[in-house]
Simulated scan of single mutants.
Amino acid sequence: MVLDAIMTTWSQPEVLALAGLSLLLAVFWRVPIFGWLLYPLRLLDTFVHEMSHGMAAIITGGRFERFVVYPNREGLAHIRGGNRFVVVSAGYLGPALLGGALILLSATELAEQTILIGLGLGLALLCLRFVRNLFGFVAGLLLAASLVAAGWYLPPQPASWLFLLLMMHLPLTSANSLVDLMRLSVRRSQREQRTDAEVLAAMTHIPALVWALFWFVLALAIVVVTVTVAWSV
């Protein structure tokens, strides 16, 4: 098979490093001081979250009109049509799917620098096309330029570690965000904007907590499956 020809087996040290980094990111996410150090990555999560809504709308026959991102890492995608269930779910599953795709790419012969440049160019194009507020536009292009610069200028080893950080951060942040989402689903408040889980709860009459748990399990499953495939082929 073509896949067998290009995939390489992960070594045990790589897997151990992957597990250790995953644990550190999960811990740092919950520590306020370290959380701010991860602000650029967490801001990237918001871009991926909103773009996932939009891409899901396009795939299911709808229209992705625009989206905005704010300094507090909140965002809002403006969408028309599409499959409502898929579009709403994509916000939290999209980062996990992208992280899973990066995990699979990491086991190929494709250079990490090339992937980083591709990610940066893709983010830049999507920002130019869909972002419609000043902060989101500037922040998105800065993140995109950083990815391109990292892929272009970093030596192979530092680029490899940056890529490792990105590929694990995306699915982990999806899982961490879903933990917060579960808390919000349990503790209802006077929030002006409903969470994605609350939107589906209103549509299906299934509690928001159930949807949050469902997405949490799927996000973790994506990580487990992609790591298993990347390590075993």
Rank of each mutant, 00 (worst) to 15 (best):
S106L: 07
T108N: 12
T108E: 11
E109V: 15
L110N: 02
L110M: 15
A111N: 11
A111D: 13
A111P: 15
E112D: 14
T114I: 14
I117R: 14
I117K: 12
G120V: 10
G120Y: 14
L121V: 15
L121T: 11
L121S: 08
L123H: 09
A124S: 12
L125A: 15
L125K: 06
L126D: 01
L126N: 08
L126C: 10
C127G: 04
R129G: 00
F130C: 01
V131P: 08
N133P: 06
G136V: 03
G136E: 06
F137S: 05
V138H: 10
A139D: 08
L141F: 12
L142I: 13
L142P: 06
A144C: 09
A145I: 10
S146T: 13
S146C: 11
S146Q: 06
L147P: 08
V148Y: 13
V148H: 14
G151Q: 10
W152N: 07
W152F: 14
Y153I: 02
Y153H: 07
L154G: 01
P155S: 10
Q157H: 13
Q157C: 00
A159R: 02
S160Q: 04
S160E: 08
W161S: 09
L162T: 00
L162W: 00
L164F: 10
L164A: 09
L165M: 09
L166F: 08
P171N: 10
T173Y: 12
A175P: 03
A175R: 13
D180Q: 13
L181A: 00
M182N: 02
L184E: 02
S185P: 10
V186I: 14
R187H: 12
R188M: 04
S189V: 01
R194C: 05
T195C: 05
T195I: 09
T195E: 01
A197C: 13
A197V: 09
E198S: 02
V199H: 04
L200V: 02
L200M: 09
A202S: 12
M203L: 15
M203A: 09
T204Y: 11
H205A: 03
I206E: 00
